[in-house]
């Protein structure tokens, strides 16, 4: 799995953190646009009761495919959205992405323990940003 971009978006759909891997820095704007448009897909997935999908699962699966990337979504119970974009490969990386999401969710929960972090604020803690950068390497 090759994640190229990780985004954390608040319950009011404002970006809390968005990191792109160094190799993809030049297409950051494209990725931002993709992240923005995938919010609509998430919204739809949460409201429309589609059949065959486990509604009680926090992991939403692949949101939509593009030529270059695969976009996966995850929404916590507090409506925090986490997006992971990977290179488009033919391999099935569902399980890997799922574990990554669990990890990210756990780190976000730990971030909340920080007394200087107000929920809904942008994340600007070097240790957390570094942690995300390490995943993207």
């Amino acid at each position: 799995m090759n994640p190229v971009c990780i985004a954390i978006i608040s319950n009011e759909n404002s970006p809390l953190l968005m990191q792109t891997s160094t190799a993809y820095k030049s297409s950051e704007l494209d990725l931002m646009f993709l992240a923005h448009s995938s919010l609509d897909v998430i919204e739809e997935k949460l409201t429309v009761r589609s059949t065959g999908v486990d509604q009680r699962e926090l992991y939403l699966g692949q949101l939509y495919p593009t030529e270059q990337y695969k976009i996966y979504g995850y929404v916590t119970n507090s409506k925090i959205k986490i997006l992971v974009m990977t290179e488009n490969t033919s391999q099935n990386i569902d399980q890997e992405v799922k574990t990554l999401f669990k990890q990210l969710h756990r780190s976000y929960a730990q971030l909340m323990y920080n007394p200087f972090y107000q929920p809904g604020d942008k994340i600007h803690f070097p240790s957390f940003v570094k942690y995300i950068e390490d995943i993207l390497k």
Binding site: E57, N77, A109, M112
Partner: peptide
Amino acid sequence: QERLNLEAPRT
């Protein structure tokens, strides 16, 4: 809430 909802299903 965030801490206890890591493994919980969607409400």
